[in-house]
Design a protein around this nucleic acid. Structure first.
Length: 138
DNA sequence: TAGGCCATCTGGTCCT
DNA sequence: AGGACCAGATGGCCTA
């Protein structure tokens, strides 16, 4: 079937529908309208719910520099790493980085420690060496 | 140019 | 029935 909804349809969905032959049938118009409305809702949900949540979460993750651009998957992984770190710090008082722990799960994301990730990307000495969290051998 | 990332569309499922 | 949520597909943009 022709991809009749690959258009923004916020204001003139009727015109769009009438411009596509397979949807010139009057009986199918309500279906197309519902699909357009569903697309708009999904667009809105992604932009105003999902992305805002990612941006909010991003603000809670310390990086060097602070405004470093992170992809969504990086935000999720770093958030997990950071939570692990805070949890460890809260209950044990230790300052060990999550990325240095030997858990298999964490091992895969070893290079995504909040405190040294930026340095890993730049292939230089980890920025975390300048603070008390870092236990990486210098 | 290939790969990563993202926005958007789409159809299915679940919930109210 | 309609809306929310989700995952897969797709195409565009950007960077190494």
């Amino acid at each position: 079937m022709e991809n009749y909804l690959n258009y923004p349809c916020e204001e003139t969905w009727e015109q769009r529908i009438f411009s596509v032959s397979s949807y010139q049938n009057v009986e199918t118009q309500p279906v197309a309208k519902q699909r357009c409305q569903a697309n708009a809702r999904e667009r809105d949900r992604t932009q105003n719910s999902v992305n805002i949540a990612f941006n909010t979460l991003r603000l809670l993750i310390p990086t060097e520099p602070a405004d470093r651009k992170l992809s969504k998957i990086e935000i999720l992984r770093l958030a997990g790493s950071y939570i692990t770190h805070l949890d460890n710090q809260l209950y044990t008082g230790e300052m060990e980085q999550p990325c240095l722990q030997k858990s298999d799960v964490i091992e895969r994301d070893k290079s995504l420690c909040t405190f040294c990730w930026s340095a890993v990307k730049k292939d230089k000495s980890p920025a975390c060496h300048s603070n008390s969290y870092c236990k990486t051998p210098r």
